[in-house]
Design a protein around this nucleic acid. Structure first.
Lengths: 123, 123
DNA sequence: CTAAACCTTCACGTTGACGTGAAGGTCAAG
DNA sequence: CTTGACCTTCACGTCAACGTGAAGGTTTAG
């Protein structure tokens, strides 16, 4: 498939896909015309990229981790053992983020709960 | 207290505090010298700001919400009812973020689990 | 064969939350 | 009264993940 088709299939834009390639996350083949050519597995790869990006990983971290994620998507990775540290670091970062989000949500929840419904004087 | 002291107390920088003021999040008094003067409650306010920022709220959203968070910090807000919508929107955004983080963490967990320990052939 | 719809490579613009000097006023200690 | 640690207001720099043309080649449907 070509870049536009992949972009539609993965819910993104050609520009983003070129950016991912520039960052070393994708390595599409090239047709004689110079057009990029992606195999169907690229759809899953791009979805993984977007997921990790939305989790706050940057492209450098994803570039490390991505080779360990199999194209098959149902089968797990043969795994690159030397990356376990990096994985653990990112995992910890995500957990910390989730805790902060939970704390912030609690703040909002308290405001919502103390809302217009309950209006008891404090005495 | 002055800006440097507040910055140290809240674990941030004077520059950030001036930025918060510029965004309407803080309104310190001024001494005759032109120096900003903060009361002790500002420490808690700044902590709230940082928490909400780290949860992905921008300064505009925080500017809406912050007036509803009491300086006391243990007592809940009298609440501004017209903000319930905005609160709900941000709450939903946070929940979505947490779900994405959880999904990404699952991906990492599967990689970590399938790590060097387990190495069974698939047949 | 031609026009629409693709694609290519530059290369500059955007957004948010600050960082980082620059140039100068203020305050406490010695 | 001077030095050093504060503080002030500009105002430009940064970083990441793209957006947005510009100028031009390619492919495909009619």
């Amino acid at each position: 498939m070509r870049i536009g088709e992949l972009a539609r299939a993965a819910g993104t834009t050609p520009r983003a896909l070129r950016y991912y390639e520039e960052q070393g996350l994708l390595r599409p083949a090239r047709l004689a015309s110079g057009y990029r050519h992606y195999d169907p597995q690229a759809v899953g790869t791009v979805r993984h990229i977007q997921l990790l990006l939305s989790a706050g990983l940057n492209t450098a971290a994803i570039a490390e981790i991505l080779p360990c994620i199999p194209n098959d998507a149902t089968v797990l990775a043969p795994t690159c053992p030397e990356l376990l540290d990096a994985l653990a670091v990112e995992r910890a970062r995500i957990t910390t983020s989730m805790e902060r989000l939970a704390a912030a949500r609690d703040v909002l929840d308290r405001l919502i709960q103390a809302g217009p419904a309950t209006r008891r004087p404090t005495h």
